[in-house]
Amino acid sequence: MLSALLVLGGLGLVLGAVLGWAEVKFRVADDPLVEKIDAILPQTQCGQCGFPGCKPYAEAIAKGEAPINKCPPGGADGVKRLAELLGVDPPAADDMEHKPRAVAVIDENTCIGCTLCIQSCPVDAIVGASKQLHVILEKQCTGCELCLPPCPVDCIHMVVVKEDLATWKWRYPVHTLRRVA
């Protein structure tokens, strides 16, 4: 009886110590779920979800504080993938209008070189200096539209990216329905 208690108690102590040590030693600093959610988010950093960037939104989703259908650039596909990752039913995403990919373009004749748009760009995709013409790097622009409101002369507008030979996609095959009788 006593020996059994000692053996089991001892085992419990040893295993507890091992677990305690492992918890400290192999601690995961960041929540891996946040990284996974962040990987699905489109990284436009547009703030349309109400959070200052994709990472904060990912953190909020991971904590269960934000619904997963607040990201218009990610679209219905993004919501579906988030739902799959989190193991929840995808909520209705019909309030999200799907916009074609667009990039911001600065009108060179109107820009006064105020640098306000440069400060607002979340991905540093605008090049320029005070009283110098600003230019948006098309390849880096995420189309977040955050540069539009600060511009005092309204010289930035969004241009839809046209498809070219490199980005052209085969269309979904169209079924021809056969008339029956």
Partner: peptide, 17 residues
């Protein structure tokens, strides 16, 4: 794949900013 590359780049640039 293209979108993934672009969003990784955007994340990197945003983090750097």
């Amino acid at each position: 794949e293209r979108d993934k590359t672009a969003s990784d780049e955007a994340r990197r640039r945003h983090e750097f900013k």
